[in-house]
Design a protein around this nucleic acid. Sequence first.
DNA 1: GTGGTCTAGACCACG
DNA 2: GTGGTCTAGACCACC
Lengths: 137, 137, 137, 137
Amino acid sequence: MFFNINTSNGVPVYEQIARQIVFAVANRGIETGELVPSVRNLSRELAVNPNTVARAYRQLQDQGVLETVRGEGLVVTKGAAAKCKSTRKKMIGERILSVLQEARQSQLTEDDIKSLFADSLAASKKLANKNRTRKES
Amino acid sequence: MFFNINTSNGVPVYEQIARQIVFAVANRGIETGELVPSVRNLSRELAVNPNTVARAYRQLQDQGVLETVRGEGLVVTKGAAAKCKSTRKKMIGERILSVLQEARQSQLTEDDIKSLFADSLAASKKLANKNRTRKES
Amino acid sequence: MFFNINTSNGVPVYEQIARQIVFAVANRGIETGELVPSVRNLSRELAVNPNTVARAYRQLQDQGVLETVRGEGLVVTKGAAAKCKSTRKKMIGERILSVLQEARQSQLTEDDIKSLFADSLAASKKLANKNRTRKES
Amino acid sequence: MFFNINTSNGVPVYEQIARQIVFAVANRGIETGELVPSVRNLSRELAVNPNTVARAYRQLQDQGVLETVRGEGLVVTKGAAAKCKSTRKKMIGERILSVLQEARQSQLTEDDIKSLFADSLAASKKLANKNRTRKES
DNA sequence: GTGGTCTAGACCACG
DNA sequence: GTGGTCTAGACCACC
């Protein structure tokens, strides 16, 4: 499990954890029936408060992505992979739509918006490669 | 001056006001030297507390977009239009980059991302038209 | 009469006018018995509100620097020159003391303070020369 | 932490707090990574409204001196000590320059100015000693 | 517990 | 009339 937690960008930590678990399930990084890391292990690994991890897990249980197995821990539910694929698209799509609405409201031209998007897409690709390289090294 | 304030989307009201004034200055909706609406007037118009408007204005003063003219009110500074144009692009660009980075991290394919963008762009255009029509009617 | 009015440095305009008249009297730029400019003339010259000039004059009357001569206007009182010389020193001295107290509180060393003073003194001399040259040209 | 707040000298309370924190960081009275007093505690200690303290802290965040650690409080940022040392000098230097410019404009002689400075420096030293003694007693 | 936002309302200085 | 400061107190999210 690879998490990127940023404690200083305003996004709640529990939210970041929950989203990234959704992504992992969508990518089959965690399979149906597989245990997720224990609260105390994950909290140690991410250096965050255990309550924060617990809150993320609780939220995922409410969404039906995780369920408890008595005496074992939390596992990915049966239909989760498909569901997560769809929610992943929805989550990202919502954010995209929201920023585009602000872009419209700011009266940027459609061409400006498109070029910002293209630039950002290239920039994000570069950043992704850099991170990958750093991790491989 | 047209403001779209949404008090229930998590974005602080004072921040929305500040951003939209930056947009207005960038579009020359408010020209250099022109007075922005008085704190009291704008607060009445938007049905928010005067302090909230004052906070937005204070932030814009710190950024050098507005300055006080004693006994008169707040006016747009000299270099503000150019500065606002650039910050507008920066603000929108940052949001786009941020969502694209999450999209990468979620391992959506580049094609998925592009199609989400295209869909959202179309959707935002529709929404903009709807708003325009509503206001004209 | 030469006034330097700065409407955007926080110091009240009427205060700047009053102080500078005190200075002028101290320097014998305006002599005892001489008329000061009329409110409306000075307000036009400085491009400020007549009320502002009137307020400065009122303050100077309260201090006994100016007095009304019926049908004439405001003139410099008899003992004003000496008094203004002393208040000038007091006013400047108070400001100097105040900033030095903050400097102490900030725990700048005495050497730091002295060097800041020397630098500023040189800088203010340069600025004064520049202004003089500009006015002469 | 020792604060000298004067609520009746025209300088905004939040500004006094902010300046004195800058001084404290410059003197390493508060180190990088260390928590500043909580808004509630400091407001109680200084007998001012929490919002007033919060405003000072917000200003310091904008300047990059403080940053929030979620659920913990506000800590001094990494580069803050150096930055505060320089802004301290700048803040004091600006005030000195400003008063010297007025002294020039008032046509005090350079000797007069120097003697006022020397007197004030001595006076401020005495005041500082008196305060120190009072605190020690 | 922490900071952040917002409201309501008072008072002041300035023009 | 204008903005600026400050108070008092509520509510929220996060840890």
